[in-house]
Design a protein around this nucleic acid. Structure first.
Length: 169
DNA sequence: TGCGCGATTCTC
DNA sequence: AGAATCGCGCAT
């Protein structure tokens, strides 16, 4: 079953945890469909999260994070890698979950490379070209490891928030 | 108009 | 440990 936008219209931490074990699916430019189980996520949420791009307010770049739940947010980092996020919560509230890793592929940049995800998907809704499926009966009952987010040491008191989630093993 | 830096990854 | 590489946010 494809997840619908109502799945994302919830607390960002809940979405980050509950995306673990779901299947990320992508229709490649060639038409071929590939997928992998999501194993690692991070939450970026609210007006007080200094690690979030949206902390500095609504800008051309962060506008997507204020949009409808289930919207795709892709940004370019370090001038060379793309990162995939899914917008959560409600309109006008900045929130997204970063997909940091899938089965066999670690790191947000490598996930985007593998799934051929770039900024052309930014602002689009999940559904046609990129979607999440929840039908993995064998992927359940796993343990979730919680830790601090990666690469946000600049974020003051927000850097120690335990908003990173990954499947153990 | 210019500058510093980043939710990273790969190589030396 | 250092490079690669560019758009964004803020200062000028």
């Amino acid at each position: 079953m494809k997840l619908k936008s109502d799945f994302f219209a919830k607390n960002t931490l809940w979405v980050a945890k509950n995306l673990l074990g779901k299947r990320l699916c992508r229709k490649l430019r060639s038409g071929k469909i590939i997928s992998a189980i999501i194993t690692e996520t991070e939450a970026y949420q609210g007006f007080n999260d200094k690690a979030s791009h949206a902390h500095k307010g609504r800008t051309k770049r962060t506008e997507v994070m204020f949009g409808e739940p289930g919207t795709i947010y892709v940004y370019l980092i370090y001038g060379m890698h793309c990162c995939l996020n899914l917008v959560c919560e409600k309109m006008d509230y900045p929130a997204a979950v970063l997909i940091r890793g899938v089965e066999g592929i670690n790191g947000p940049g490598r996930v985007c490379k593998h799934f051929q995800i770039d900024k052309k998907l930014n602002g689009k809704k999940i559904g046609g070209e990129l979607w999440i499926e929840d039908k993995n009966k064998k992927v359940s009952g796993f343990m979730i490891h919680v830790s601090r987010r990666v690469g946000v040491d600049y974020a003051g008191e927000s850097k120690d928030l335990l908003w990173r989630f990954m499947i153990k093993n």
